[in-house]
Design a protein around this nucleic acid. Structure first.
Length: 198
DNA sequence: CGAATGATATACT
DNA sequence: GTATATCATTCGA
């Protein structure tokens, strides 16, 4: 298992990278606690031409600034006043491409995740939904702008096989405001049970 | 189905 | 500086 290198993130084909993130392992080390989860669902946000993107039309503010940095940066923001959504920034400097991680399967530190979620008893199999995922991994807006090549949050390749046949493609969730771009096939997922360690 | 909940962007004075 | 609408969601009824 190896940590994804800068090269992985510098590509500008954001849908291709979104597909490749499936089966990769999102890791965090916060408060001295390590948690890891296998990514099972992603959504691509294709930069200044994408009405659904926060960077649409080249908009750049204090919040969206991390998206304009080099690929391999984290972009985390608060949504609906209570959910921290985690994104992976892709492409080179001034290419505001990002990938929202929507769901994952706990791999390591599942007890810590349960405790963070405040559900001591109920062991949920999956982390379905970007807010829940961030909460389980302890990701907050403190991490926006953090490098994925450092030791707070990063992504590893555990050589989990994902056949292109088992990837489902569909429209993104919760972006009805984006008009025609709301229907773009930018959401990628794999069945949570299909992931297996090779 | 609908409330919760607060940072952020935008449009004002 | 102040006001207000909005949101890449979640959970429980």
């Amino acid at each position: 298992m190896t940590r994804l290198a800068r090269k992985f993130y510098l590509r500008e084909d954001v849908t291709e990278v979104s597909r490749e993130l499936l089966g990769k392992v999102l890791c965090s080390q916060l408060d001295g606690k390590i948690t890891k989860a296998i990514i099972t669902e992603t959504e691509a946000y294709a930069g200044i031409g994408d009405r659904a993107s926060h960077a649409y039309g080249g908009r750049r503010t204090a919040r969206t600034d991390p998206m304009y940095r080099r690929g391999g940066t984290a972009y985390v923001y608060l949504c609906y006043g209570m959910h921290h959504l985690f994104n992976v920034v892709v492409g080179d400097v001034d290419m505001p491409l990002a990938i929202l991680v929507r769901a994952a399967k706990p791999l390591e530190g599942t007890d810590i995740m349960r405790r963070r979620r405040g559900q001591p008893g109920a062991a949920r199999i999956g982390l379905a939904g970007p807010g829940v995922l961030s909460q389980a991994l302890g990701i907050t807006t403190d991490l926006t702008g953090a490098s994925l090549l450092e030791d707070r949050v990063w992504i590893e390749d555990h050589r989990i096989a994902v056949d292109s046949q088992e990837v489902s493609v569909g429209p993104r969730i919760g972006v009805d405001y984006a008009g025609k771009d709301a229907h773009l096939p930018y959401r990628f997922s794999i069945a949570i049970d299909s992931v297996s360690i090779r």
